[in-house]
Simulated scan of single mutants.
Amino acid sequence: MQGLGWIASIIVGGLAGWIASSIMGTHTGVIANIIVGIVGGMVGNWLLGLAGINMRAGNAIAQGIAALVGAMFMIWVVQGLA
C-alpha cells in the first residue's frame, strides 16, 4: 500500500481484509485478514489502475478502498478455485 507506513498498512489491511471476509461470507482469522488486506491493496491498486482509476494518493481511505476491492477479488478467485 503506497504512501502508508508499515503500521498503517497493517491496520488498513486488517480492516479491509476483515470487511472483505465479512462481505464475502468467509470466516478467517486476524492474521489471514491482515495478509489478504495488504496483498489485496496491491492487487486492488493494480485492478483499479487497469480501469483508469488512480488510488495511489497515499491517504488511508483511498488505500482502504483499494485494499477492500483487491481483497474481495482475491477471496472470489480462491473460492472459485476451491
Results as ranks from 00 to 15, higher is better:
G52I: 14
A8F: 00
G37F: 08
N45L: 10
G5H: 01
S22C: 04
V12D: 00
Q63Y: 03
I23P: 01
N54I: 08
A32W: 04
A20G: 08
Q79P: 00
L50Q: 15
G64F: 11
I75H: 02
M55G: 12
M1T: 02
G64E: 04
M42Y: 11
L81S: 14
I35P: 04
I61M: 13
V77A: 12
M72R: 01
V78A: 14
A57R: 08
I75G: 00
M24A: 11
G37I: 11
Q2R: 03
I7A: 03
I23M: 06
N59S: 05
I65F: 11
G58T: 09
L48P: 03
V39Y: 13
A60T: 10
A57F: 10
Q63N: 12
L47R: 03
A60K: 05
W18N: 14
G80Y: 13
G58S: 07
M74W: 00
A71D: 03
G13F: 04
G41M: 02
I35C: 12
W46A: 15
A82Q: 14
L47I: 12
L68V: 11
I19G: 06
I75Y: 03
G52E: 13
A57P: 00
W6L: 09
V69R: 05
T28Q: 14
G52S: 14
I35F: 12
V78C: 04
A66M: 05
G44P: 07
F73M: 04
G3K: 00
Q79M: 12
G64C: 04
G5Y: 00
I7F: 04
G14L: 01
M55T: 15
I31L: 15
L68D: 05
A20R: 06
A82E: 13
G70R: 08
N54T: 08
A66V: 07
S9F: 00
V78Y: 12
M72N: 01
A67S: 15
G14R: 02
Q63A: 09
A16P: 09
L48T: 12
L50G: 15
G14W: 01
A8K: 01
G37T: 11
N54L: 04
F73A: 10
I11M: 02
A60G: 03
V39W: 12
I34P: 11
N59R: 10
G25I: 04
N54D: 15
W6H: 00
I65T: 13
M74A: 06
I38S: 04
G70Y: 07
G44L: 10
I34L: 14
A62L: 02
A16V: 09
T28K: 13
V43W: 06
V78P: 00
I10H: 00
G17R: 09
A60H: 03
I61G: 06
I61K: 10
M24L: 07
A66R: 03
G5F: 00
V69D: 08
I65E: 03
G40P: 03
W6I: 06
G3S: 01
R56A: 15
G70S: 11
I38E: 04
V77G: 02
A57V: 06
G49Y: 14
Q79D: 14
G44T: 12
F73Q: 00
I61S: 10
I38A: 09
I35G: 08
G25A: 07
